[in-house]
Design a protein around this nucleic acid. Structure first.
Length: 594
RNA sequence: GCGCUUGUAGCUCAGCUGGAUAGAGCUACGGACUUCUAAUCCGUAGGCCGGGGGUUCGAAUCCCUCCAAGCGCGCCA
């Protein structure tokens, strides 16, 4: 029993090729140069932090390269080249998986791994199959990721789509790294905007009964409002009008239903691109059962507030905010900031160790105030991360369209989905970093739908599907029946036995080797994407893998007349498995044929 | 005015915790299907990394400054 657990543990750790190698390498460096550890702690940390093992820019230098000798040289008072030789002889030279080490340039150590090691690793991909790519680094750590959280007063626009997709993919990535993720949408159904929205809907709704009710001057665009009014009318008829003669109106129920329907439309839109939440958190729920008073007491007890000009203020500057914020306005109503405090307290009480927000750049002013609240209620502000995503600009032809819900104009997310489809939307929105201002050219998106990079990746997957079908049709002589059935579902029993018989000799050509190498980088990609909050690492990885596969496919035959090249077939199957896992992370479909 | 983000090939973007000759895709041009899907592959072209200073063995990357773009600086939400 113990043995089995140990094996699993080893596999889980070991599957991170680069990250694990680095860990081991650093450990060996400390053993070889104990004086590093004796230095001041901060400095010691920074030395080790700047040691890298990574793919060299130029592939000709090898699989991996490290700058260790150069980084350590100044601290250990040796010439980089001498140090490189020492590290080569005493550390890297003893690693079984390494085939050769070259010292180059000012002191780089270039490493080439053994083919047999790579093949061994590829076989492990099959042993892991479903769990390949995931790791235990953050085992069970509770994290909440909040994204989209658009006001329920209109349709989602394209910008919201970006946060929806990015948030969803990031959640997937965190899950694969072992986190226990809660995906949450915060619904602002309390306060002025929600009220104005309800008033708008009410005006249109009452028109159905020839009752005049003023449409708010700064109201929302009629298009969406009418839609909501229609649904309410069809569903509830006149039941909100309590008395036909006095026109007494059930405002509360009406407004709650109007918001609820808007939320359900938003839910549908998000669902259409595969974005679903664990929790829809309603702002209004924060104000039930005296919880607002309790919060005020909580803050006052801790001396975090003060009165000024008839308003109640929160001392957020004490916690790093640029200005103090009003909690209760002169008119006695709580501000949005008051909700923020209660919501954060609520999140804390639910036991999340980490909180992650994805906000649009128009909300970047939030960072300091959210962190201030977090600190004030005793949370570690470093465990509250706020990702600011740059806004999406819509461009049609040469015209820049501003996306403003209030003004109503604009291309909605629904429009986009029906134009280009879910897969393209998801790929398109996740392929850049959060810091990129995304210019979304609608005409291009329509026109380009067939040259979207997503098809390139999917095509690689479809091609492998074709190989499998072919293999099943004219079952070659060297392939046994069990193996073929194993390919279909990666049954590890059948498949695993077969794998043991694979010869672990060298790859025949660079394209086989490169494909294998890229397949093996997947777990590290998942890890790094999490560490850097960078969903686009996955897109880039998949594009690279697809590219590697297309090249491999073009230059290597897997099926010949009556025989099959088993090693190549395995590579294709491993690629297939990883492409599927990767596309799953992105929430993009993996078609068997195209 | 202050703050956040960005400025890299004609276009869209990687590379930014300093490292070897700055990379992809799209576009353009030229090649490759009797053989597992040509939605593919191969090649060519394309760059004062916004400008200027500094830090050092070494800068697209770090610091300063200027220019340009987007966004924010409410008792709105």
């Amino acid at each position: 029993m113990f043995f089995i657990i140990y094996i699993i543990f080893i596999l889980k750790e070991d599957i991170l090729l680069l990250n694990c190698l680095k860990k081991r390498f650093l450990k060996d460096i400390i053993t070889l140069f104990p004086e590093i550890e004796n230095q001041e702690k901060a400095e010691y940390k920074s030395i080790l932090a700047s040691v890298r093992i990574e793919e060299p820019k130029n592939r000709e230098f090898g699989d991996l390269t490290t700058n260790a000798a150069m980084v350590l040289a100044s601290k250990i008072r040796k010439k980089p080249s001498d140090l490189a030789t020492l590290i080569k002889d005493e550390i890297l030279g003893r690693y079984e998986e390494i085939k050769e080490i070259n010292i180059a340039g000012p002191g780089f150590l270039n490493i080439k791994l053994k083919d047999s090691f790579l093949i061994e690793k590829i076989l492990e991909v099959f042993k892991q199959h479903d769990s390949y790519g995931s790791n235990d680094t953050a085992k069970g750590t509770k994290i909440q990721i909040e994204y989209v959280s658009s006001n329920p007063t209109g349709n989602l626009h394209i910008g919201h789509g970006r946060w929806g997709v990015m948030g969803d993919i990031l959640s997937n990535i965190y899950s694969l790294n072992g986190f226990d993720v809660c995906r949450e949408y915060y619904v602002n159904d309390y306060g002025t905007q929600a009220k104005i929205f309800a008033e708008c809907v009410r005006s249109v709704y009452l028109e159905r009964f020839d009752i005049k009710y003023p449409y708010p001057e700064e109201g929302y665009p009629r298009e969406t409002v009418s839609k909501i009014a229609d649904i309410l009318f069809n569903k509830f008829s006149d039941s909100f009008i309590k008395d036909k003669t006095t026109l007494e109106f059930d405002e509360i129920s009406f407004s709650r239903n109007a918001i609820r329907i808007m939320v359900s439309l938003i839910t549908d839109t998000l669902k259409s691109i595969g974005v679903e939440f664990d929790v829809w958190f309603f702002e209004s729920s924060l104000y039930g059962e005296g919880s607002f008073d309790a919060t005020l007491d909580f803050l006052k007890e801790r001396n975090l507030t003060y009165d000024e000009e008839e308003a109640l203020w929160f001392k957020s500057t004490d916690f790093g905010d640029d200005k103090d914020r009003v909690i209760i306005r002169k008119d006695g109503n709580p501000t949005y900031f008051a909700s923020d405090i209660m919501y954060l307290i609520n999140k804390k009480e639910r036991g999340f160790e980490y909180l992650l927000y994805i906000l649009g750049a128009d909300h970047h002013g939030y960072i300091s105030r959210l962190k201030a609240i977090a600190s004030s209620i005793g949370m570690d502000k470093d465990k509250v991360s706020i990702i600011i995503g740059q806004l999406v600009r819509i461009i049609e032809g040469r015209e820049v369209q501003k996306m403003s819900r209030r003004k109503g104009k604009g291309f909605t997310l629904d429009d986009l989905v029906s134009e280009v489809g879910r897969d393209a939307v998801r790929y398109f929105f996740s392929m850049n970093s959060f810091d990129t201002h995304l210019d979304f050219d609608i005409s291009l998106a329509k026109k380009k739908s067939n040259q979207n990079p997503v098809f390139y990746v999917q095509y690689a997957f479809a091609r492998i599907g074709s190989i499998i079908r072919k293999t099943n049709e004219n079952r070659p002589v060297n392939l046994d029946a069990d193996f073929v059935s194993g390919m279909e579902d990666y049954d590890s029993q059948v498949f695993g036995n077969f794998l043991l018989s694979i010869e672990k000799n060298d790859f025949k050509n660079p394209s086989e080797r490169n494909l294998a190498w890229t397949i093996l980088l997947f777990p590290d990609t998942v890890r790094d994407a999490c560490r850097s909050n960078a969903p686009y690492f996955v897109n880039q990885y998949l594009y690279r893998l697809a590219s590697e596969f297309h090249y491999f496919y073009k230059h290597n035959k897997i099926i010949t007349k009556d025989k099959i090249n088993i090693k190549r077939l395995l590579l294709a199957l491993a690629a297939r498995l990883v492409l599927k896992k990767g596309l799953d992370i992105l929430g993009v479909s993996a078609p068997e044929r195209m």
